[in-house]
Design a protein around this nucleic acid. Structure first.
Length: 158
DNA sequence: GCCAACGTTGGC
DNA sequence: GCCAACGTTGGC
């Protein structure tokens, strides 16, 4: 359902990310929009987020921020890395409502998709929101966490 | 397909 | 403002 009462105040956009987080993770079901499709298209509008917390994270994104792309539901895993090429603007799929979208560009595919099980098993990644808020679809990552996931995804011996 | 966790709605 | 009911997400 799209018709609901929406808060109208505009957050400053960076209030949530204490020192301006520059690393993110976005979730998508591959049946809805897969990494392969994203790669073929090169860039995409990240629309359709309908959760206040996730929306506020979208609004905190800066140009050039790096974004992990995570496939949920079937074979859940981090599969690739993207970057922000346009910061938050009104989500065109919900005109007149207070939702936001950003534009993302696909950068590269991880050599080894990093499964949720591997993430859970890594002592350095115990604190990431993916494990704590399983339903949040846009979340910030600490630089250390982002780099750790990249390291595992590029070098892991599966 | 099942079910737990979570977010939202609505009655009170 | 509380909380039960409901719908959705997402792991398994």
């Amino acid at each position: 359902m799209v018709t609901k009462k929406l808060e109208t105040n505009h957050h400053s956009g960076s209030s949530l990310a204490s020192q301006g987080a520059h690393y993110w993770l976005v979730k998508q079901e591959p049946t809805a929009y897969s990494w392969d499709t994203f790669l073929k298209e090169g860039a995409t509008s990240w629309t359709g987020v309908r959760n206040f917390q996730a929306r506020n994270h979208l609004r905190s994104m800066h140009l050039g921020d790096q974004v992990l792309f995570y496939h949920s539901v079937s074979n859940p895993s981090v599969v690739g890395v993207a970057t922000v090429i346009k910061t938050a603007y009104p989500d065109p799929t919900s005109p007149g409502e207070n939702w936001s979208a950003v534009d993302l560009k696909a950068l590269f595919t991880l050599k080894h998709p990093l499964s949720l099980a591997q993430i859970k098993a890594d002592p350095h990644l115990l604190e990431i929101p993916l494990l704590k808020q399983s339903r949040l679809s846009v979340m910030p990552l600490k630089e250390k966490e982002f780099l750790r996931i990249l390291e595992l995804g590029q070098h892991a011996k599966n």
